[in-house]
Deep mutational scan, measured.
Amino acid sequence: MQIFVKTATGKTITLEVEPSDTIENVKAKIQDKEGIPPDQQRLAFAGKQLEDGRTLSDYNIQKESTLHLALR
């Protein structure tokens, strides 16, 4: 499925993911596309910060959802 990640600079990244993917996997995909190390990424959805060990389906993130990326 496709999801979107909006960066602090307003850029939107499109990612191909599975509901079973962990947040860690998603951060690795962002690193592949943007070169941002996962340990510098903070992802949020619906106002909640997402934890590495959880999956997209844990957070009820569905196709075409938009996550927000902040850098630490």
Score class of each variant (00 low, 15 high):
residue 22 T to G: 04
residue 36 I to T: 15
residue 67 L to N: 01
residue 29 K to A: 10
residue 26 V to N: 00
residue 40 Q to G: 12
residue 71 L to R: 09
residue 53 G to R: 13
residue 17 V to M: 11
residue 49 Q to T: 04
residue 11 K to V: 12
residue 45 F to D: 02
residue 4 F to D: 03
residue 9 T to Y: 07
residue 69 L to I: 10
residue 47 G to W: 06
residue 20 S to N: 10
residue 29 K to L: 07
residue 38 P to R: 15
residue 30 I to T: 02
residue 50 L to C: 03
residue 22 T to A: 09
residue 63 K to T: 09
residue 32 D to N: 15
residue 8 A to L: 12
residue 48 K to I: 14
residue 35 G to N: 06
residue 68 H to L: 13
residue 31 Q to N: 13
residue 38 P to M: 15
residue 17 V to E: 01
residue 8 A to Q: 11
residue 2 Q to P: 15
residue 72 R to H: 08
residue 3 I to F: 01
residue 33 K to H: 10
residue 43 L to D: 00
residue 68 H to R: 06
residue 12 T to W: 12
residue 47 G to H: 06
residue 10 G to A: 10
residue 18 E to W: 10
residue 62 Q to S: 15
residue 18 E to N: 12
residue 21 D to Q: 07
residue 24 E to A: 06
residue 2 Q to A: 10
residue 61 I to C: 02
residue 27 K to R: 09
residue 41 Q to A: 03
residue 14 T to S: 08
residue 45 F to A: 04
residue 11 K to E: 07
residue 68 H to F: 14
residue 17 V to D: 00
residue 26 V to G: 00
residue 21 D to H: 11
residue 1 M to A: 03
residue 49 Q to I: 12
residue 37 P to L: 12
residue 11 K to N: 09
residue 35 G to A: 10
residue 43 L to Q: 00
residue 29 K to S: 05
residue 61 I to H: 01
residue 5 V to S: 01
residue 51 E to P: 03
residue 67 L to K: 01
residue 11 K to M: 06
residue 38 P to H: 15
residue 18 E to P: 10
residue 12 T to K: 13
residue 42 R to C: 04
residue 7 T to M: 04
residue 8 A to D: 12
residue 4 F to W: 12
residue 15 L to M: 08
residue 55 T to R: 05
residue 61 I to V: 15
residue 5 V to N: 00
residue 28 A to S: 05
residue 50 L to A: 02
residue 47 G to T: 07
residue 67 L to H: 01
residue 63 K to M: 13
residue 27 K to L: 04
residue 10 G to K: 03
residue 58 D to N: 05
residue 12 T to E: 14
residue 21 D to E: 12
residue 28 A to P: 01
residue 50 L to D: 00
residue 44 A to P: 00
residue 52 D to R: 04
residue 7 T to H: 12
residue 64 E to A: 10
residue 20 S to Q: 09
residue 38 P to I: 08
residue 21 D to Y: 06
residue 40 Q to A: 13
residue 13 I to E: 02
residue 34 E to A: 11
residue 4 F to P: 01
residue 26 V to C: 03
residue 29 K to D: 03
residue 42 R to W: 05
residue 56 L to G: 00
residue 70 A to K: 08
residue 11 K to Q: 12
residue 41 Q to L: 07
residue 59 Y to D: 02
residue 38 P to S: 10
residue 1 M to L: 11
residue 18 E to H: 12
residue 23 I to D: 01
residue 6 K to V: 13
residue 31 Q to I: 02
residue 43 L to Y: 03
residue 13 I to Y: 11
residue 8 A to N: 10
residue 8 A to K: 08
residue 51 E to S: 06
residue 39 D to W: 10
residue 43 L to A: 01
residue 16 E to Q: 12
residue 24 E to D: 07
residue 49 Q to F: 09
residue 69 L to V: 12
residue 65 S to G: 06
residue 57 S to Y: 12
residue 43 L to W: 02
residue 19 P to C: 03
residue 18 E to K: 12
residue 11 K to G: 13
residue 56 L to D: 00
residue 70 A to M: 13
residue 11 K to C: 04
residue 4 F to S: 07
residue 45 F to W: 08
residue 45 F to K: 03
residue 56 L to A: 02
residue 18 E to Q: 12
residue 40 Q to Y: 07
residue 38 P to V: 13
residue 64 E to N: 10
residue 14 T to R: 12
residue 61 I to E: 00
residue 18 E to V: 13
residue 44 A to I: 07
residue 57 S to E: 09
residue 38 P to K: 13
residue 66 T to K: 05
residue 8 A to I: 15
residue 63 K to A: 10
residue 17 V to G: 02
residue 34 E to T: 09
residue 10 G to L: 12
residue 33 K to T: 08
residue 31 Q to W: 13
residue 32 D to M: 09
residue 31 Q to C: 04
residue 27 K to E: 01
residue 57 S to D: 12
residue 56 L to I: 11
residue 7 T to G: 06
residue 20 S to K: 11
residue 15 L to T: 01
residue 6 K to Y: 14
residue 47 G to Y: 05
residue 67 L to P: 01
residue 55 T to P: 07
residue 60 N to I: 05
residue 28 A to Q: 15
residue 34 E to H: 06
residue 65 S to N: 15
residue 57 S to I: 06
residue 43 L to V: 06
residue 41 Q to K: 01
residue 67 L to F: 05
residue 46 A to R: 05
residue 39 D to P: 05
residue 21 D to S: 07
residue 39 D to C: 04
residue 68 H to D: 13
residue 16 E to I: 14
residue 32 D to V: 08
residue 1 M to Y: 15
residue 32 D to C: 04
residue 6 K to N: 07
residue 14 T to E: 14
residue 55 T to G: 04
residue 13 I to A: 02
residue 54 R to T: 11
residue 28 A to T: 10
residue 51 E to A: 05
residue 16 E to R: 08
residue 56 L to T: 02
residue 61 I to D: 00
residue 40 Q to L: 07
residue 62 Q to F: 14
residue 44 A to R: 14
residue 66 T to P: 02
residue 46 A to I: 10
residue 56 L to S: 01
residue 31 Q to R: 12
residue 45 F to G: 02
residue 5 V to L: 12
residue 9 T to H: 03
residue 38 P to D: 06
residue 4 F to I: 08
residue 25 N to L: 15
residue 39 D to V: 09
residue 15 L to C: 02
residue 35 G to D: 15
residue 30 I to R: 00
residue 50 L to V: 05
residue 71 L to M: 05
residue 23 I to Q: 02
residue 2 Q to D: 11
residue 58 D to W: 11
residue 6 K to F: 09
residue 36 I to D: 03
residue 59 Y to C: 03
residue 14 T to Y: 13
residue 61 I to N: 00
residue 16 E to M: 08
residue 57 S to F: 14
residue 44 A to K: 07
residue 30 I to D: 00
residue 10 G to C: 03
residue 5 V to T: 02
residue 34 E to R: 04
residue 32 D to H: 14
residue 34 E to Y: 08
residue 19 P to V: 11
residue 26 V to H: 00
residue 52 D to T: 10
residue 72 R to L: 15
residue 11 K to D: 12
residue 24 E to W: 12
residue 19 P to K: 15
residue 29 K to Y: 12
residue 68 H to K: 15
residue 10 G to V: 04
residue 14 T to F: 04
residue 54 R to N: 10
residue 56 L to F: 03
residue 5 V to I: 07
residue 39 D to F: 08
residue 36 I to K: 03
residue 65 S to P: 02
residue 2 Q to K: 12
residue 6 K to P: 01
residue 67 L to I: 14
residue 34 E to I: 09
residue 66 T to Y: 08
residue 47 G to V: 02
residue 50 L to Q: 01
residue 28 A to D: 06
residue 61 I to L: 05
residue 35 G to V: 03
residue 67 L to G: 01
residue 16 E to G: 08
residue 44 A to Y: 07
residue 52 D to K: 04
residue 5 V to C: 03
residue 28 A to C: 04
residue 50 L to I: 05
residue 54 R to G: 14
residue 18 E to D: 09
residue 57 S to Q: 11
residue 23 I to P: 02
